[in-house]
């Protein structure tokens, strides 16, 4: 009885220690990226290339998703607001929920599953096929050459994608609310503008998405670089990237919202 109980506690303690240990290694990895990121600015085309693969290639999913999220918000918001006779507040409802929460969070979640998992798989496979070791043999720092440009590309891309997501969402809400249902266009826009504050809502949303960009890319790169160099290891790392970054986004979103309000 006693022995079984101790065994459970030992298992729990080992897990906690392991995850703390991984967070520590991750933080050291992040500081290593920051220290070695000179090359991603002096040879900027490296970053631009990664920006193409993680940012431009994610555009379509972000735009389409944003549009449909906005349309759903328009429909649901209208149905709810109608009960209180305040359909004119639809514009501010759609814009506030997008700019404050849905834009940054959903864009980062989509980015994590679209670009983050690809980053992990790419770096993990580079490691498995010993390309990383080959670079080290040629005295090229793989973190500066491979990892840092991807990091900065992700950090640049996520806020821009989040802003586009919000704009597309507002447009989708406009389509459903004003064009389809027939909410008054003037009150839609004027209520939106009088209720969305630039500093308190827009800038805070941008700040959130910057934080998400750093976290998602750092997790994706760390998992890729840390993956065991086997087929199984890379697949596990890709899964972990999506799970960990999604959880990190949602938890951080709560913390940041609580700090900002």
């Amino acid at each position: 009885m006693m022995a079984a109980l101790t065994k459970n506690f030992v298992g729990l303690g080992r897990r906690v220690m392991n995850s703390l240990w991984r967070i520590g290694i991750g933080a050291r990895f992040l500081s290593l990226i920051l220290l070695n990121s000179g090359i991603s600015f002096s040879r900027f085309h490296l970053t631009v290339k990664e920006l193409f693969f993680s940012g431009v290639m994610s555009l379509i999913i972000i735009l389409v998703a944003g549009m449909f999220v906005g349309m759903v918000l328009g429909l649901q918001g209208y149905e709810t607001l109608k009960r209180y006779g305040s359909e004119s507040a639809l514009g501010s409802l759609v814009a506030l929920s997008l700019v404050r929460e849905l834009g940054p969070v959903l864009a980062a979640l989509l980015f994590a599953s679209r670009a983050g998992s690809a980053m992990t798989a790419e770096i993990g496979l580079m490691k498995a096929t010993e390309q990383i070791s080959a670079m080290e043999m040629m005295a090229i720092n793989p973190i500066a050459r491979v990892v840092a440009p991807r990091f900065w590309a992700g950090v640049f891309a996520v806020p821009l994608l989040a802003a586009m997501f919000s704009v597309m969402g507002v447009f989708g809400g406009y389509l459903v609310g004003v064009v389809l249902i027939g909410v008054d266009e003037g009150s839609f826009w004027s209520q939106m503008q009088s209720n969305v504050d630039f500093q308190h809502d827009v800038l805070n949303g941008v700040f959130k998405s910057c934080v998400f960009g750093v976290v998602v890319t750092a997790i994706a790169l760390f998992e890729g670089y840390d993956a065991p160099p086997t087929a199984e290891g890379v697949s596990g790392a890709t899964t972990r990237t999506v799970v960990e970054s999604s959880l990190a986004i949602l938890i951080l979103d709560f913390i940041l919202t609580a700090l900002m309000i």
Binding site: F52, V99, P159, L160, V167, V202
Partner: peptide
Amino acid sequence: WVGIFVVAGLGALVTLALKVGNL
């Protein structure tokens, strides 16, 4: 393409500030 992407992103930010927000 990256140039278009960055301009579109910044344009979205400006739209958020001016059209959606109250700047």
